[in-house]
Amino acid sequence: MTSSPARQRARVDDATLRAATGADWDGWLTRLDEWGARDRGHREIAAKLVEWGVEGWWAQTITVGFEQERRGRQPGQRADGTFNASASKTINAPNERVFDLVIDEAQRATWLPDVELTARTMTRPGTARFELPDGSRLSAWLTPKGTEKTLVAISHEKLPDAETMGLRKEFWKTRLTDLKAAAEAQRSL
């Protein structure tokens, strides 16, 4: 008997999966095995599921579950084998102020000292992407929440392993707290 993917099962139980897609975990794993999914890439598996009538988010969920169960893909691991760490925080400051704290090197040093970032792309006032010396990448998304609040979401991509992912996740939680303090300190000036 096939066991269900532990991580995906924690997110989506058999009854929910069956109601949304017409089959439970064992059903999808068996069908994908019969189709030959073990020898196919992530995109090809997801595309096949869509071809079979599974909607996009569900196709991704089933694909990741299959990869976790059959290929040993770890929670947080991307299809290319790397890991992503993410963190977010709502900051009591206007979007433009927070964006400047993220993109301006001198301002960034107040909340993110000793981290060398090379800018890749910037789209005011919402996205900033950077390269780090180790080859990993950092993406920041800033979403206004009214005129005086900003949601900042960080994704640190292309990390080598789950341990590094965990360490980076904690690091970014702390750094976003520091960003919040820096943005709110400017408010009082």
Rank of each mutant, 00 (worst) to 15 (best):
T2Y: 09
P5M: 07
P5V: 04
A6F: 10
Q8F: 15
V12G: 15
D14E: 05
T16L: 07
R18S: 10
R18H: 11
A19W: 09
D24R: 01
W25S: 04
W28M: 13
E34Y: 04
W35D: 08
G36D: 11
A37Y: 08
A37Q: 01
R38G: 08
D39A: 01
G41V: 09
H42R: 15
R43E: 10
E44A: 04
I45V: 15
A47P: 09
A47M: 08
V50D: 05
V50I: 15
E51P: 03
W52G: 01
G53N: 00
E55Y: 07
E55R: 12
W57C: 12
A59D: 14
Q60Y: 07
T61W: 05
I62S: 15
T63D: 10
R70V: 02
R73C: 00
P75M: 00
G76H: 01
D80C: 04
G81V: 03
F83D: 10
A85I: 00
K89V: 14
K89R: 06
T90Y: 01
I91L: 09
N92M: 11
A93P: 12
P94K: 06
E96K: 14
R97A: 12
D100R: 09
D100F: 09
V102S: 00
D104P: 01
E105D: 11
E105A: 10
Q107N: 00
A109L: 08
A109E: 02
W111Q: 05
P113V: 09
D114N: 05
D114Y: 09
D114W: 12
E116Y: 11
L117A: 02
T118C: 00
R120G: 15
M122D: 05
M122I: 11
P125Y: 14
E131T: 04
E131M: 06
E131L: 14
L132H: 07
L138D: 02
A140R: 06
L142R: 15
T147C: 04
T150S: 11
L151K: 15
L151H: 13
V152Y: 02
V152H: 07
A153S: 14
I154S: 01
K158F: 10
P160S: 09
E163L: 05
M165K: 05
G166I: 09
G166N: 15
L167A: 07
L167I: 13
W172R: 02
K173S: 05
T174W: 03
T174L: 14
D178N: 03
L179K: 10
L179M: 07
L179A: 02
A181K: 01
A181Q: 08
A182W: 13
A183N: 12
E184P: 07
A185D: 11
A185G: 13
Q186L: 15
R187M: 14
R187S: 02
